[in-house]
Structures are given as C-alpha cells and as structure tokens.
Design a protein around this nucleic acid. Structure first.
Lengths: 225, 225, 225, 225
DNA sequence: TATGAATGAGCTTTCATTCAT
DNA sequence: CATGAATGAAAGCTCATTCAT
C-alpha cells in the first residue's frame, strides 16, 4: 500500500504517476517494468518514488486498488435491467457491464490483467486478492444450485474455476479486439459484439445448466475410454 | 536452434544444462530467467553457454522442440481406445492422454507452459508456433460440423478459441494440482481425476453441441438485457 | 551531449572524469577505450558514468566540444599581426596559432586527434563535424583564387584536400615532437620550430601559388610517362 | 611471423585464411578485428589458428609481408619509361605505378593501409617497418640534392616526412575514389585520374624544388608574424 | 518532503587463448 | 597436425535502492 505521502500529493501529480505506471505495466508486465522508466515518464524524482511507494509491487497493488474502486463506482450506478433474473442472467449482465467498464478504462484494465492473469499467477502475494473474486463466484454458484438453476451434482469449486476461466477469456478477447477499434465503448455495445459475448456465455451456461440425468446418461455412454 | 556444439556434448552434460534451464524457466519465466544462474546451476562456464546457444530464446526454443518431440513420441505409442469415435470423444481422449504426458514430464511442461501461456502472448516470435495448434483445432471443428456433431451456425474461430482456452485451463489445473501429489501419474489416472477432467470437458462439449434451435430460442428468451 | 547531471557536478569531480577520459582516448583511441578503466581512474561508480553520459561516444563528443570551445576562446584573444595579409599569410598565422593552442592543451588535442584522424574516418557520425572545417577551407581557397593568389586552374576540392592533409600532418608532427620536450609551448615558439613550420607551409604554398603558365609548361615537358 | 605449419598448408586453405583476414582488417581495423570472425569466415578450427599464427598481430604482419612481396613482384616487371629521369620524375613514376598496384590488390591494400596509417601509428611494432620506407625516401632525397634537383638547404628529414605524407594522401584519395568505380584499374589509368595525380605531385614537387634564394626571399618578406 | 546523485550488483554478450583428444 | 570445447576476464549497460542535502 502506498505511503501516506502519496495521498497527500496534489491530484494532478498523483495522476501523472499512476498513468506512467499503467503505461509501464501494460507495456512490460510486472517483472520487466522499470522503476527508472516510471519515474522518468511521470516527471518525479527517483527518491520521491520511494517516499510514495515501498517498491514496484506496491505501485501495482495501488493500481489494483484503483481498479477495484473504479469498478465499484461504475457498478454502483448501473442496475440490472430486470428484477427477477436468474443466476445466469445476472452473471451475463455482470460480464457485459464489466466489458463496458473495461472499455471505459482500457489501459488500466489491460495493465492489471496482463499482470494478474500471467506472471501474477506465480505470486503468492496476489493469491488472496484473487480469492476475493473466487469467493463471490462460489456464493453465486451455491445460490444457483439452491435455486435449482444448476445441477446439484456439479462440483462447486470446479464450476467456479470454469466461470473464472471463462470470464477472463472473454475479457481478454474483448479487450484485445476492442483495442483495435476507434471507439471501444461503441464497439462493445454494438449488437454484433454483444452477440459474440452471449454466444461465449451460452456455451458455459449450457454446460453448467444441464440436468443430472443428462450428464449421467452421457457420462455412461461415452466414458468407456 | 542450439549450435552443433551442444549436440556433440556428452548426454550427461547436456541433460544437466537443459535441466538447469527447465528449472530456471519454470521458476522465473522467460524474461526474468538469468543465464548467469543457468550456467551456475549446470556447472558450465559462462562462455560455454554461448558456444551451445545463440541466446536465452535459443535455449527456450530448444526446450520447446524437446517438448514437441517427446509429445510426438508419447502419442505415437498410444492409440485411441475405439475406432468410431466422434470428434468430441477424440478430443477428450487427446486431452486425457495429454494430461498423462504432462504427468510424465511435469517440470518441462511447467516451464514451457509458463512461458507460452503468459509472456509468450506478447512475443510475436511465438505467434506462429501457437498458430500450429490453432490450425489443428480449426480443422477438427470443421470436421465436427461436417459430421453434424456441432451446430453449423457455430462460429469456427470462436469455437477454436473456446477449445484452446479450455484445454489450457484444464492443463493448468491438472498440472497445478498434480504437482502437489506424491505420484502425479497415478493421481492423473485415478478415477476421481479422470472424472474431473470429464466434467470440465462436458461443460464445453454441451455448450458447443447444442442445436441451433436451442440457441435461437434461448437467445430470444433471455437477451432482453 | 552529456546529461545535465554531469554539469551539476562539482568542478573538481568533473575534471577528474574528463581527465581520465582524455587519458583513455589518448592511450587507446575510441574503440578500444574502456569505460571500465575510465570509471576506475576517475574514482566514480560505473552506474554514475551512465548518469553523466549516454555512452562512450557521448563522452568523446563532449571532449570534442570542450576542445572547440577552448580553441574559440584561445583564438578570440589573438589577433593577426598585420592588417593586409594575403590568404596564405593568414593561413600560416592560423596554423601557427593553432600549434600554440595545441601546446596549451596537448593531451586533449592528442586524444581528439587520435580519434578524429584515425578511426574517426570510418565513422559517419564525425563526417559532418569534419565537413565544417572543410567548408571553411573551401571558402578560403575560393577567395584566394579571386584575389589572384592561387592559380585559377587549381581544383578547389583538391586544394582543400591538400590543405587539410597538410595541416593535419604539421599538427601531428609538432605534437609528436612537442610531447618529447620539457616545455612544449616554449619549444613551439622557438625560432627553430617556427622555421620548420614555415618550411612545411611554404612547400604547400609554392605548390598552390604557381601560375597556370608554369604548370602548363611543366606538365607538357614531363608528362610523357 | 606465421609458424611453419602455416606455410605447409595447401595453398587453397592458406588463401582462404588470408582472404578472411584481409576482409576482417579492412572492415574493422587491427584493434577491433576479431579472431573469432576470421576463424569463422575462413572455415578453420579455432585451435588451428593458433597453430598457424602467434596472435592477431602475427596475421597482420603476414599480410604486410604478402603485400610487400606482391608489390616487389609487381614492380619487378615494370620499368621506368625513360632512362634519364630526374628524381621527381622517378618518384612520380613510382607513385603512379604504386597506384596501379593498389588497383590490382585493392582489398589487401585497403586492409593494410587502414591499420598502418591509423592505429598503426601508435604501435611501436610497426615503427621499424615504416622506417624501411623512410630510409628509401631519404636516400632518394639525398641523391636529388646531389643531382642539384633539390635545394641543398632543404632539411632531409623534413622532405622525407613531406613525401611520405604526400604519397599516403594520394594513395588514400585514389583508393577511396577508386573503390567507387566499376573497373578500378581502368579508372586509375584514365587520363583524368592521371592528371589529378600529376597535379597533386606537382604541388609537392614545386614546393620542394624551389631554390634557396626563392625561399630566403619569401621567408624574409613574410615571416613578420 | 523533495530531490537526484551515488552505488554496485547484476545483466547479456564477446573475446583471446588453452588444452585434451 | 587438426580439432573445437572450455574458459573466465572483460566488455557495455541497466537496475532497484540508499542517502545526504
């Protein structure tokens, strides 16, 4: 976590720093990111950096926090379109709204994703951060099972893993394609893109929804291998 | 590609070097891997390294080649259990056999995966290597559509992306859990693990198999968001 | 150009560094000059060097700039002894004053000459720097032709080449011999040395002054070979 | 001097080696020349190099010897066009024939010149080699004085230095321009090139020929500075 | 608090030379 | 003689971090 000195900074300066950091992480990832370059690009003194942050990880953790805060803000203003949505409908809404958020902060999202989904895997530091998301999904799945929306035989942890993998894959795909567009937000909201997202989600949804009997049947049929 | 000098080395020495390289890449990834450490751990002189390899990438590409060769060998001895398998059955057999292979060479697989699935994303050098796998899957999907196993309305590229994501996710999951086990191979072949793999694959399979009508119906019902 | 950090250094330190650099370039030339040795001899850390300079070329270019500046200063205080000198008289005065300057900064001149006159030939970087001197001489020759001091049939570029070669040769000779003396400046100003310089210059001067008719005559007489 | 082993080599191999060496020295000079590259380009084993030569200097000294031998051969077949040439006519003939020789072995000449005229200056090893040429010129000048062709007051060493500088300058100029031509030899023998050489030489010749009285007069007139 | 100079470990890479086979 | 693997010093350069001002 950044030191208090950082938060006492005038906002303009603070922004310049985090922008430089975002660019650096987006471009080079966490390991290869250079404090030297961040400092140079943000126009602050080398020593100052160490008065604001502990080290490279510290800056990144701050970006993560910023991302979470902004996401929270973003979702606070949005409301699910319908009252009585089932779990998958809700998940789909969340994913889509998440994609809109990504379009609003593409560079920040890119920087954080690049680190969290790749090198971050190998850092224990980030394990508990990731765990938070996992917890949310786990609760969601359990409710879906209780509501009869998901087959009770489904392994909860497995389902969570699937959902995480899936949303990350979608996120990556959308961000990557989106970065090529002139107006990302417009592109994300376009009917075609929304349909692509829907298709991806339906694959997962169908997989998870299927009834126990279906599964059992297929399982027996096929697993002679 | 390593220089001829490398292949003239006594096998023992050669193995010591590639083992050190595997450990290094598995631990630090490609970027952060240190030639200094590799030579230290393999007990060769720093100058010798450059008599064997062009540079860091060169060692890694060799590991990649070794992995491919070993995989080829491994699959050559295995035969699909049944004659008339449909595409998904074949895919499932491939994934499972792949997992067995991973259990046979866990550290090598770990080293290569770590690089290919993470930093490798950002290296154009690896794009064409990855493309090879992609091509295989694309062909597979097209055949599945022709065989009527997959709905013709399914977007081929999307399906390929899904299958890639999926097999990587499974591979990661299995390898990660497997590394905690005493006897990986035994664990992978256990009924429980096999069932887990099956479940994961079925989610995907169901998602992709669903008929056009199903999709259309669901699509209209739900996409009011 | 050195970085600002270099110019913020206390003069003493700065001098120690450029002295070490001068010694290094004088001893080893540009290519073989070792930054390691420079930092060792100037007592600074290796990292510091790169905070002062971009690289080896950068230090050298600084020496070049220092030399030019000092030369400018030196010439500013000197005034040609007579008003109505002809071109050759002026050139001779310049060369002689230049030799005095060389005696004032022998090591710096040695270091720069060694690089510029030797390896420098093969560096395009220095081509434009050299071009400046060339331009000056070209103008000088053209005026001399207009003034009727030099035979109009003389090829301007050829004459420039001759003058450059000549002044470099003289400069080299004087510096080389001068370094053996106890008091260079005194030696350079001695009647004997001045006479030597005069003789060298007269060879060139006579050669260039000769009238067209002389040349034509000799040319016909001799070029039967 | 190369070791006996070198001279026992089949001519083809020997030529391959010296060609690689010529290329290396022409491209990189003596200091920056890399034995590694020479070995690679000549297709011999690293160890063999050290069985043929002492070190880098040794190879170069051999090139020098080859150059001298070839030059000797070349001049042996040529004969001055006239019997009763004066010293300057002879010198001019020598220079011109030398230029023809350079055209016949441009790469070898280039390699050797690059080293001898630049870095070579700072190597004592080459001092005695250079001295040989110097001796020849000294004798030539003394004869010219005896023949009354050069003013007896002329300082012999000075004259030698002038002639050396001059022939090097011409050689450099001709080689440099010649390398741009399609057919060097033809270009060198062309009337225009020969005239250029003549002009350069006449400048020197006039300078050196002038009578003592001329010199004394001019010297008094001008040397008020 | 702000600064930016100082630092040395570490990086990748090339080098000339030796030496066992 | 021929070979080419082995070697470690040295090259240029970057890095995160400290610290005096």
């Amino acid at each position: 976590m950044p030191k208090p000195t950082f938060f006492n900074l005038p906002e303009e300066k603070r922004e310049k720093i985090i922008n430089a950091a975002i660019d650096e992480f987006a471009e080079y990832g966490l390991e290869k990111a250079s404090i030297n370059r961040i400092v140079a690009n943000s126009g602050i003194a080398k020593g100052s950096f160490y008065q604001y942050f502990e080290d490279k990880h510290d800056v990144f953790l701050h970006l993560l926090a910023v991302l979470e805060r902004e996401k929270m803000e973003y979702f606070k203003d949005k409301h699910p379109p319908a009252r009585n949505m089932d779990t998958f409908q809700y998940f789909r809404w969340m994913i889509k709204t998440g994609m809109e958020f990504n379009s609003a902060y593409p560079r920040l999202v890119q920087a954080v994703s690049r680190v969290m989904l790749n090198e971050g895997m190998y850092y224990l530091d980030f394990a508990n951060i990731r765990e938070r998301t996992t917890q949310g999904l786990r609760t969601m799945i359990r409710q879906a099972i209780q509501n009869g929306e998901v087959d009770p035989s489904v392994d909860v942890d497995l389902a969570v893993m699937i959902m995480e993998t899936w949303s990350n894959a979608i996120s990556n795909y959308i961000l990557q394609e989106g970065m090529k567009q002139k107006d990302i937000m417009k592109w994300v909201r376009s009917a075609k893109t929304q349909e692509t997202i829907d298709k991806m989600l339906y694959v997962m949804e169908y997989g998870l929804r299927k009834t126990e009997s279906d599964f059992a049947k297929t399982f027996q049929e096929r697993t002679t291998s």
